Simulated scan of single mutants.
Amino acid sequence: MSPATKRTVVITGGGTGIGAATAELFAEAGHDVTITGRREEVLAAAAKRLGVAHLAFDAADPAAVQAALDQLPTGIDVLVNNAGGNTDRRRPPVAAGDLAGLADGWRANFEANVLTTVLVTEALKPRLADGARIVTVGSVAAKQGSGSYGAAKAALEAWNVETARTLGVRGITANIVAPGVTLDTEFFAGTVSEEWVAGRVATAFNRRAGTPAEIAQAIFFLGRADAGHLTGQVIHVNGGVHTAR
């Protein structure tokens, strides 16, 4: 790949699952990739396997994002906002009537999914090349509802439209890829059974879950230099589940 076609790519939450699968695609295509996340050991292992750079920091912490800027690339062509997940799956259930616990849960999902995306994107805006691509991982939950997690992903859809509008004059696009049930990730944190998965994927037109590689392919396409007229969109990669009623 010539220097003129090589692109600089930053992927948050790049150590596992969809983020790692996306990093693998961009790296295999010859691009310069940096993955980020909170866990140094996980990132280092993934970076070694994929042949990419890595930087550990908490994307929901403004001070940590600011401090990371000294080590993040400049001239970024593709920013993939993948950090996030349903924090409710790692927290104890909130008792009925516990409004403080409910508020904590909603804040946790907002921070993990919205703040990680907003803070990193805002910090890197001055470093985005004209014609850059911003791709954010959303969820079918934004359409179907899933408590605070679905609400957080829905908030990202509104943010994405504003981002696409304000940066469009620079030729920068902003899109969301919305998976449904996707296995071989850390998302469910061992909290679901095979029966639960079967029930959820029964509404998919192809009657199956997705894979990280399939989601990564959609992200990779949106990150292409020649995908410049597709912006402000939510691309559903969930077997048609978003149409279920």
Rank of each mutant, 00 (worst) to 15 (best):
A21D: 02
S193Q: 03
T231Q: 07
A198M: 10
A108E: 00
W196R: 10
E162M: 15
A142G: 13
S139K: 07
D61C: 13
V65E: 02
R245F: 12
F110M: 12
N82G: 01
V169I: 11
E111L: 14
G147D: 06
V140G: 03
R127N: 11
V192A: 07
D184N: 15
N86G: 12
T191D: 03
G190R: 06
K6W: 02
V114G: 00
F221L: 11
V237W: 08
H236P: 02
A213Q: 12
A164H: 02
A96H: 10
L128H: 09
P179V: 06
T243K: 09
Y149K: 00
G105N: 01
K143L: 05
A142N: 02
D77E: 08
H54A: 15
V120N: 04
G131Y: 12
E162W: 13
A23H: 02
A204K: 07
A29N: 05
A132T: 08
T8F: 03
W106N: 05
A178N: 11
L115I: 02
F221T: 13
I11F: 05
A47Y: 08
P62K: 07
T12S: 11
A227D: 04
D226L: 09
G14H: 06
T34I: 09
A218M: 10
A198E: 14
T121L: 13
R200Y: 04
Q217Y: 04
L119M: 14
F26T: 09
H229T: 11
N109K: 07
A53L: 09
G228A: 12
A46K: 03
W196M: 15
V169N: 08
F187A: 07
T36N: 02
V181I: 14
K125C: 10
R89T: 12
A174L: 03
N82Y: 01
Q217L: 10
A178D: 06
W159C: 03
G147L: 10
A83Y: 03
A47D: 06
G75E: 14
Q66N: 14
D70T: 15
N113G: 01
G239E: 00
V197M: 01
